[in-house]
Design a protein around this nucleic acid. Sequence first.
DNA 1: ATTGGTAAATTGGTATTACCAATTTATCTG
DNA 2: CAGATAAATTGGTAATACCAATTTACCAAT
Lengths: 249, 249
Amino acid sequence: MKAERMSDQVARVVEKAITEGQYPVGSQLPPERELAVRLGVSRPTLRQALTTLAARGWLETRQGGGHRVCQHLGDGFSDPLLALLSNDKDYQYDILEYRNALEGMAAWYAALRLTHSDRQRLQACVIELERSHAAGNAEEQARADADFHLAIAEASHNTVLLHSMKALFRVLATSIAESVFQIAGQGDTADRLLAQHKCLLEAILEGDAESAQRASQAHLGFVESCLNESHRQGRQRQRGLQAFNVMPG
Amino acid sequence: MKAERMSDQVARVVEKAITEGQYPVGSQLPPERELAVRLGVSRPTLRQALTTLAARGWLETRQGGGHRVCQHLGDGFSDPLLALLSNDKDYQYDILEYRNALEGMAAWYAALRLTHSDRQRLQACVIELERSHAAGNAEEQARADADFHLAIAEASHNTVLLHSMKALFRVLATSIAESVFQIAGQGDTADRLLAQHKCLLEAILEGDAESAQRASQAHLGFVESCLNESHRQGRQRQRGLQAFNVMPG
DNA sequence: ATTGGTAAATTGGTATTACCAATTTATCTG
DNA sequence: CAGATAAATTGGTAATACCAATTTACCAAT
């Protein structure tokens, strides 16, 4: 049986120390030279291990500044395949369908679990949407759009969902900006998008989970219909998003 | 402005070479000593870069055997925070809600896009579920359960969804096995779970997207109700899964 | 020509030592 | 006490050496 290599063992040991709270979020690990001695390995081997942990999002390092446990776990890493798919036009409908499920879920639970501070946060996000819409700034609109949807995800109080949506929006940043830019040139489309965001907010604030979910899905359906319907290579597929939107309710 | 470190630049260059097809899936990278010379860096620096790519799931390495591009991209990596949340009892309801959304979506699109080979694959999976159920083997039941749900995800023909569900089931393997084991001791529960799987299959085979989604959600609702309802720490939350299940339809 | 065994070559993994560059800390001066 | 500067500490890179696993080449037997 093939033995696990030393640097992977070290990575496991350090990762376990992090997850068990020996190195709390934000704290600094011991210096490399010291940690290497403690763990009985050479500095290059330790650095292999720490590189692995950094790639997984556990650590952030700065030359001279030490290795620190990431302030927001999961924020330092990105799923390379998700990133690849998100920036490939062949998968833009896959991405939209996926968003539809996650954002529909977020809207549903946000409507059910909204706290007072969630309310304030969402209202502030919509104000920012209005502001960037009035300014006609596509980049700010894209950022405000992502902030709004992530605020809904936070209001859902489902940590797993929030984590997945953060990962998704991180890799979608570029293509969302492009979509907003593309859509901005289509007459009253930007006005309609803003109206949809407000409608979604209203449903959430009213605690109407079904309406919130429908509003979310209508919004994404509209986004889909606005996008450039370039020919879709590969499989002949059903345009599921439209159908998915008319889920009973 | 802080310069990007050399090993991260090398990682980017190699990752780009992979994604652009210079190193196709399954192919072997040039030996370290040669690649280091080509890229003008030292072997330790190259190894830092390759370690990062391996941690992200792009590469698999074996001593003496070379560095190879992973056969199944995305399979070599796991999201550490997702893994952490999946094995923490405080988040088991978050996980169930998240599965509810993804598996509901998978069932929906599988019903719409089912191919002939998908049919065969799903039917084979259910046979395997029946076999492991009859044998009373919890570990095989857990594996058959995951295989069935992943086969549905494949039948949805949404690559992003499939990728996310694979990642989720990879980290849930342990806790699903525990759930199956826990549930197995509850009278006719295993029989009812098998019946639910069959009901879900029927709805998919009939191309009834709404029924498929409801069957999926009923299944997870039942799983939730069977699980040990341990006290839920932290926030006072609504039991959203039950409500989510009775989505109109 | 094929198969199995063995040696050699090639590959990745680990270690030691040295030095560079960024950051942090200590010290000194006004 | 604040600011400047030097020293110490930290991470980053490099060269060289050697170990261990895998692959390849070679040879003998069938």
